[in-house]
Write a protein that binds this DNA or RNA. Structure first.
Length: 804
RNA sequence: GCGGAUGUGGCGGAACUGGCAGACGCGCUGGUCUUAGGAACCAGUGCCAAAAGCGUGGGGGUUCGAGUCCCUUCAUCCGCACCA
């Protein structure tokens, strides 16, 4: 009988779907395990071969955990708001909800054809009003706690499409869609105060089991730095210039100050400034530059001295000139710095260009540090010079001494800064969650009453954004005009919508209790299922989605909705699947592999096996059709094991050790996501069976259960053909006996001067004298005429003879 | 520039705390069965004609012993980019 994967896969998928085999149980007394994959955006292109890599990985672990007795939650849903559907709608004049529904249906069909053990009864969709009701509810809670606020922020604006763009849509400084020029435009935006959680987002990483590179990337993104804020008096005024520095120890070396072009000091002291025209001109020039130009063409520094005002160094009383330059950013620190060109590379470059004085205040222990060619920035070996009361101190002590002095004199204080910025939460778009806020002339911004949620998206005829980058909703006057929930007077609705990150920031909570209409999920469900035990996803989401959802979860923790500080106990990441030429798959390169075609031609089990065998799970690997065929051949050989099947209810003496070793190896490999070596182990094992030309029923059953998480259909079919009345899904995970995984005879390599010359077979744990005799019998001819200097025997490992 | 990875046969990749480098798969070579084979099975396959020798990007080092540890250097990929 040939391996008819089409028939087999259909049969089992139908059964699973009909019986809800993999649905999580609502019995909260069972031990639980919650596995999560990033729910897909249902794009028009359908599933990419990258999606199933992550889904299969956690599917394997979910299936194993179920057989190990856990109540497993392995859910699926769709993150369906977003730009592609909206752009498609604009082009073809179809409502995004229709396109979205079609795409979701296509995705579901594809996902089901691969045989994932998702709990489909808990499927969610972020565009469902019953879902986004709670996204809006969370926003209102954030607003009530002062963590959502409105402010004017520059946004990316495409001058050709007349549309506000997200950062992701700006590629190399031009509009991703039309290639038009992108400029900065001031716009009032909703912001979320993620910065308030910056420290906790760093600290609590200690509590979770994330890959180290994920933690590092998040920490770098949050960008904590310790330093000091210092007030510099402006000569002849009562004004101060507040600066931030991480190197207060170098204060005696400050030879000029720099403020960002947008800094308020310029307008505040405009009467004193003698070259105001020149400054204004520079400001204008800087404002015209897009973010792209400001960073990309940053090699050459520009700037103008602000004439007429000078700052006073509070440590030595010396007057210092003030410059304006766009290498200082208004958004970081205080928007002003003291420049210490001798010990900062950017200041050095600026000082060289404008011939500003460079004063060295740090040298090394030998006093040979030179600043002739570049700034001296070594903080580990630095010693203070030319610095009054700091002279002779090392950098660390000097930092402390300066801060103590500043605080005593009330001219400065230690200060921690973060690179992390607040989260721009508005999009001038249609296909997103409406922000549930109204503006009342009397009461200001007022949230909707919670009983009025969800605030549904109005049906509109046109999805084109308005002039000046307004949201398409700005044209819906009937919808906009409303009454104030607070005073009952006339009010207008917010017309911006939420970004795509909103719905995905809390979706894992909804899976716990997806049909609840009283709360985002019941407290019992949250207490039972939380936190997510294992979350796998792409590295590209480390600094956005992963950080955003941790932030929301911490907020929900603070208001008592969830009971754990962190949403995910464990986070891992998969590598990309590349085209067969080693490049990223893309239509234009013509190297895209369509999962449907693979499933159709080779079957879901082959597809899954290959996705796991393709290479180390956390690394990028190219796709290879030949290797895929190899996996199909492997499953063919698994199928044909029936031709050498023999009776036997327990492991045969011959294979007992091998079976115990395999159970151990495979179980550990799954748990450690070393799927490629797990598959290799199976291949080795069946090669052994074929070599012996036999396998008995007990061995076959164990083999099938172990392989089941990777290839669930073929193994269930063979399991049933092997005379089992239960299915694998109803069985238990095999256990192994550690003592039976240990060999009693070991082959010991024999080296002479570290070079392999022979091997000897000895009993486990043999002592040195026994082995020595065997070894010398074997290699005596190689030792003739040589002097043995030393012999090293490491039990059960190696025997090395050193000769001269 | 900063941060994170990764460099092992013709290819994808194995190798636990330093202990037989190349598991497993692909490809290739030869064979069996075939009218035929992008089928199946068997044997072989790091390099070199070779016992010897050489081999984990390059160069040093530690060690009885290094793919693995240390120093240094090069290359490729990804992320961030004037964060004071």
């Amino acid at each position: 009988m040939a391996y008819n994967f089409k028939e087999i896969e259909k049969k089992w998928q139908t059964k699973w779907e009909k019986e809800g085999t993999f649905n999580a149980k609502n019995d909260y007394s069972l031990k639980k395990w919650y596995g999560l994959i990033e729910f897909p955006y249902p794009s028009g292109q359908g599933l990419h071969v990258g999606h199933p890599r992550s889904y299969t990985a956690l599917d394997i672990i979910s299936r194993m955990k179920r057989l190990q007795g856990y109540n497993v939650l392995y859910p699926i849903g769709f993150d369906a708001f977003g730009l592609p559907a909206e752009n498609y709608a604009i082009k073809n004049n179809i409502h995004p909800s229709i396109v979205t529904e079609q795409n979701i249906n296509h995705f579901k069909e594809q996902l089901k054809s691969i045989g994932f053990s998702f709990d489909w009864s808990r499927e969610i969709n972020t565009t469902d009003p019953n879902y986004y009701k709670w996204t809006q509810w969370i926003f209102i809670q954030l607003f009530k706690k002062g963590l959502a606020y409105k402010t004017t922020m520059p946004i990316n604006y495409c001058t050709s499409c007349k549309v506000g763009l997200a950062n992701e849509e700006v590629v190399n400084g031009v509009c991703e869609r039309c290639g038009g020029e992108v400029i900065q435009k001031e716009k009032s935006q909703w912001m979320l105060k993620i910065t308030e959680y910056a420290q906790r987002l760093i600290d609590d990483l200690d509590e979770v089991d994330y890959l180290e590179k994920i933690k590092t990337q998040q920490k770098n993104w949050i960008g904590r730095s310790e330093g000091a804020e210092v007030n510099f008096k402006i000569e002849g005024t009562d004004k101060n210039l507040l600066i931030y520095t991480t190197r207060p120890d170098t204060m005696f070396g400050a030879t000029y100050m720099v403020v960002a072009p947008e800094h308020s000091i310029i307008s505040e002291l405009q009467d004193k400034i003698t070259n105001l025209d020149e400054i204004e001109k520079y400001k204008e020039l800087a404002a015209k530059k897009s973010d792209f130009e400001r960073t990309e063409i940053s090699k050459e520094k520009t700037g103008v001295e602000i004439k007429g005002i000078k700052a006073i160094n509070p440590l030595d009383g010396n007057p210092i000139p003030i410059w304006v330059s766009d290498y200082v950013l208004i958004t970081y620190g205080t928007g002003a710095i003291m420049a210490v060109p001798a010990h900062d590379t950017r200041d050095y470059e600026f000082a060289k260009k404008f011939n500003l004085p460079i004063k060295q205040v740090i040298t090394n222990k030998e006093n040979t540090a030179s600043i002739d060619q570049e700034a001296y920035t070594d903080t580990d070996n630095g010693i203070l010079i030319n610095s009054g009361f700091l002279n002779g101190m090392n950098v660390q002590d000097a930092v402390k001494a300066v801060i103590a002095h500043l605080e005593k004199e009330h001219i400065g204080k230690s200060k921690v800064n973060f690179k992390l910025r607040d989260w721009v939460f508005s999009r001038q778009r249609y296909w997103g969650e409406p922000i549930p806020m109204v503006y009342c002339k009397e009461c200001g911004w007022v949230p909707l009453d919670e009983k009025d949620l969800p605030l549904k998206l109005p049906e509109v005829k046109e999805f084109l954004p308005g002039e000046n980058g307004e949201s398409p909703l700005a044209k819906e006057t009937d919808w906009i005009n409303t009454t104030c929930p607070h005073c009952g007077g006339k009010a207008k609705r917010e017309t911006d919508t939420m970004p795509q990150w909103a719905g995905s920031s809390w979706y894992f909570l909804r899976y716990m209790d997806p049909h609840n209409d009283q709360a985002l999920a019941s407290k019992e469900a949250i207490d039972y299922w939380g936190p997510v035990d294992w979350y796998n996803g792409g590295m590209e989401h480390t600094t956005l989605h992963l950080l955003y959802s941790r932030f929301w979860h911490k907020f929900l923790y603070d208001i008592g909705v969830v009971s754990t500080k962190e949403p995910y106990a464990k986070r891992t990441s998969h590598g990309m699947i590349l085209g067969n030429n080693g490049e990223k798959m893309s239509k234009s390169k013509g190297n895209v592999v369509n999962p449907d075609e693979i499933v159709d031609e080779f079957g879901a089990d082959t597809f899954r096996t290959y996705e796991m065998f393709i290479g180390p799970f956390d690394q990028s690997t190219p796709w290879s059709m030949e290797s895929l065929r190899g996996c199909h051949k492997f499953l063919d050989r698994v199928w044909n094991l029936t031709t050498i099947l023999q009776d036997g209810d327990s492991y045969s003496k011959e294979f007992e050790k091998m079976m115990h070793k395999t159970i151990k190896k495979v179980s550990e490999d799954y748990e450690n996501m070393k799927f490629n070596t797990a598959v290799a182990t199976f291949m080795t094992l069946i090669n052994e069976f074929y070599k012996a030309k036999k396998i008995n029923k007990a061995e076959f059953n164990t083999f099938l259960i172990l392989l089941n998480p990777i290839a669930p259909h073929i193994t269930e079919e063979l399991f049933s053909l092997n005379g089992n009345t239960k299915t694998i899904a109803e069985s238990s995970w095999p256990t192994y006996d550690e003592s039976k995984t240990i060999d009693d005879e070991i082959e010991i390599p024999v080296q002479i001067n570290g070079k392999l010359k022979a091997t000897v077979i000895v009993a486990l744990d043999s002592d040195e004298s026994t082995v020595k005799k065997l070894v010398h019998d074997k290699v005596s001819h190689l030792l003739q005429g040589k002097t043995v200097v030393k012999e090293i025997y490491i039990k059960n490992k190696i025997y090395n003879i050193v000769v001269r």
